[in-house]
Computed example of a mutant assay.
Amino acid sequence: MAPSTLSIRPALRADIPMLLDLYEHLIPGDERPSLDEAAKVLERFLCYDGSAIFLGETDGLLVSSCALVVVPNLTRGARPYGLVENVVTHRDYRQRGFGKEILDAASDAAWDAGCYKIMLMTGSKKPDTQAFYLRAGFEQSKTGFQKRCIPVREES
C-alpha cells in the first residue's frame, strides 16, 4: 500500500464541524462550543494577519491540525512572533509524519509572516510527545509558566 499524502490548507467556516470532531482526539470529552460560537471565534482568530488553523487531510478525511497565531510585537525590530497551539492528529493516523507536516506548514507560514520565532507549549510529560516536538525542529530552551482558570487536563 502506497503511503498517504497530506493535503494542508487553512480552515474555513465550513470546516468547523469536522475540526471540532478532530479536537476530540486532543482533549477527549472537552466542552464543545456551538457551531455559531465556533464560527465567531474563527472569525476573530483570523483578524490577526498571518494567523490560521491549518488542516491536514488524507483519504478524504481531516486527520491533523494545528493553530498558528501571529502576534504583533514591538521588540526584535517590530517583527511578530508565532504561537502554535492545539496540535492534534487523529489517533488512527499517528506515526505517519502528519503531525510534523502540519507543524512544518505552520512554521513556513510564520516565517512568511515575518515572525522571528515560533513557540509552543505542551502539558504532556510523555517522552514520546516531547521527542516528537524535538524531531519537528522545536527546542526546549525556555521555561514556561501559565496561569489557568480551568484545571489542567489529565493525560491519558
Rank of each mutant, 00 (worst) to 15 (best):
M1D: 11
P3D: 12
S4T: 04
T5E: 14
T5G: 08
S7E: 11
S7R: 14
A11S: 01
L12E: 14
P17Y: 01
P17A: 04
L20S: 04
D21W: 08
L22W: 03
L22I: 00
Y23A: 02
E24N: 10
L26M: 01
P28T: 02
P28M: 02
G29K: 09
D30R: 12
E31I: 15
R32Q: 09
P33A: 04
P33W: 00
D36G: 12
K40F: 07
L42E: 03
R44H: 14
R44P: 08
C47W: 12
G50C: 04
S51R: 07
I53E: 07
L55Y: 04
D59G: 11
D59V: 08
G60M: 08
L62T: 03
C66Y: 08
C66L: 02
C66T: 05
A67P: 10
L68T: 02
L68A: 04
L68E: 03
V69E: 07
V70W: 07
V71H: 10
V71A: 13
P72T: 07
N73I: 05
N73H: 08
N73T: 07
L74I: 13
R76N: 08
R76A: 09
A78N: 15
A78E: 11
Y81L: 11
L83D: 04
N86Y: 07
V88G: 05
H90L: 01
D104P: 03
D108E: 12
D108A: 12
A109D: 00
A109V: 05
A110G: 03
D112W: 08
G114C: 09
C115A: 09
Y116S: 03
Y116H: 10
I118R: 06
M121D: 13
M121Y: 11
T122G: 05
T122Y: 02
S124A: 05
S124E: 02
K125F: 10
D128Y: 05
Q130H: 11
Y133A: 00
Y133G: 06
L134E: 12
L134S: 08
R135P: 04
A136R: 03
A136M: 03
A136K: 01
G137C: 01
F138G: 03
F138S: 01
E139H: 13
Q140N: 14
Q140V: 02
G144R: 07
F145I: 09
F145Y: 13
F145K: 08
Q146E: 15
Q146T: 15
K147I: 15
R148I: 11
C149S: 15
C149W: 15
C149K: 15
I150T: 15
I150C: 12
R153L: 14
E154A: 13
E154R: 15
E155Q: 09
